[in-house]
Design a protein around this nucleic acid. Structure first.
Lengths: 216, 216
DNA sequence: CATCCTAACGCAAATCCTTTGCTTTAGTGT
DNA sequence: ACACTAAAGCAAAGGATTTGCGTTAGGATG
């Protein structure tokens, strides 16, 4: 679960990190997710350490939150459903679930605010996707490249989570998956890639209306 | 240039905002773009206002930066090159130029850290794309939907800017544009959509290597 | 098992940032 | 010209942040 290089894992350092992360998470939860309401001295008191420990180790609240975010959003285990479509679908479902909640959204913002955390996380994502691809290759399937998976599925979803107020998922998860996986066959030239026939959208609520918006 | 609702435009309020924005920009530039090095009292002094003015109006540094970011990243004017491909290309070029520089990247992060700023900006982006679409429709062209433009071009580019350390643009701008616009014709089934033949990539430096990475 | 070594933590003082109640001013409407 | 209001100035109180130095926990060495 820990991203930090721990030269002495299991030691005092690890205990402090865990205590601080837990304390911060508790305090944020108690404040309804409002980050600006919690302070480092508060976290330190709850965690049973002195503030200077946190300042020296993490720098400021933003970086502490970013570190917690990357920790929290790690893809847990690689599913193995027997097929690429299954593996990707299973992973994506939990991925979207993690990120699309109001809490996940805030955690994502915490992470994106910090360059180091973001690139670190992307590395982990690439590794994870590669593992899934590896399994597919071993089965004799022909998986899309990591870049294609990122461009077609991951980027649009994360972008809409960051830039869109939609609470629910009009994220078109299954539509995007189909788009990604059906590529090699390249169905009927006209109406395939975008706006496929049988929609799986779940345009439940205040989604970002599929089409145009008002003009200035 | 100003996003804020200015009930009294041109008055003192507007002057203060301009002075504060300018002061902040200067100070950040002097510190090599390091946000954590500049403080609100510093900005206030440079702008010739008292710190409490900034605190009351913007809340904290993060929100001030987010406001500056949305202001700074507004799409200036809608180009009219006579064709959809031209309009989109011209806009995208300046768009990518704005965002992909180290400075633009930091500004983008400032904006994304703030939910309100992000959704506000997305609204503006939608309006802008709609204007471009409108021009295309008036010419009798058949432009992709705003959602398709966002999914195919905008989201992947912004995602890679945020999550990738690449200094240069291996963002595949023209490749994505082609992918977006060539959809209706749906070229040769196999090797078209992804990894087109004549690459425009400029895989100059530490880019996110096109394919797989190391395993855990 | 005893000893040494070092990264990380605790402590406390000095500094700086942030908040807040009240007053003053600039711009607008009558 | 006069009154009204949103926004800015001022100053004091209350925290947050930084920093130098002593201490400690955990690993390394023999």
């Amino acid at each position: 679960m820990s991203l930090e290089k721990t030269p002495r894992p299991g030691g005092r350092s690890a205990r402090v990190q865990q205590a601080v992360h837990a304390a911060a998470e508790e305090l944020i939860a108690e404040n309804g997710g409002d980050r600006s309401a919690v302070t480092i001295p508060q976290i330190a008191a709850r965690a049973g350490v002195t503030p200077s420990t946190i300042y020296r180790r993490w720098g400021d609240l933003q970086q502490l939150l970013a570190a917690m975010a990357t920790d929290r959003l790690l893809p847990e285990s690689v599913p193995d459903t027997g097929s690429l479509a299954g593996d990707l679908g299973a992973w994506l479902e939990s991925y979207v679930e993690d990120f699309s909640s109001p809490l996940g959204r805030r955690i994502l913002r915490d992470m994106v605010a910090d360059d180091a955390a973001t690139t670190r996380y992307f590395q982990i994502l690439q590794d994870h996707l590669d593992t899934i691809r590896g399994a597919a290759l071993r089965r004799g399937e022909d998986p899309p490249s990591v870049d294609d998976i990122v461009d077609t599925v991951v980027a649009p979803i994360i972008y809409r989570i960051l830039f869109t107020a939609a609470e629910d998922e009009s994220l078109g998860l299954s539509r995007r998956l189909r788009q990604l996986l059906q590529r090699p066959e390249a169905g009927p030239p006209g109406a395939d890639v975008h706006a496929g026939p049988e929609h799986h959208y779940q345009t439940t609520g205040t989604a970002p209306g599929p089409e145009t918006r008002r003009l200035p």
